[in-house]
């Protein structure tokens, strides 16, 4: 069992290394990730949302729906914990 998991892990790692070969270099300012979508967030955040912190403006406005989902994830976790663990003892009828 342990051996099989080791093999699986190594295979996954090898696959990841194989994929890394074609990646843009670390910290390349001209990589597609920095050129396609994000420039708008950097240049327009002040005009469009009046928020200097780009992370906040993207988090709560441009991709605000993701954050609604994120908050729902947290809510789901809380409700799940209550559902799983909480056992209210019946109060005696007085």
């Amino acid at each position: 069992m342990r051996f099989i998991s080791f093999i699986v892990t190594v295979l996954t790692g090898a696959l990841l290394i194989y994929g890394t070969v074609d990646m843009p270099n670390w910290g390349d300012p001209n990589s597609p990730a920095s050129k396609h979508v994000s420039p708008r967030y950097i240049t327009k955040t002040e005009i469009e949302t009046a928020t200097p912190n780009m992370v906040t403006s993207v988090l709560a406005d441009y991709r605000g729906y993701d954050t609604l989902g994120e908050t729902t994830v947290i809510f789901t976790a809380g409700m799940s914990c209550i559902l799983l663990l909480r056992r209210r003892k019946k109060k005696k009828a007085r």
């Binding site: 005009i47 469009e48 949302t49 009046a50 906040t56 709560a60």
Partner: peptide, 8 residues
């Protein structure tokens, strides 16, 4: 833009 800021 300010309304967006307040919304945030």
């Amino acid at each position: 833009s300010h309304a967006r800021s307040l919304g945030i």
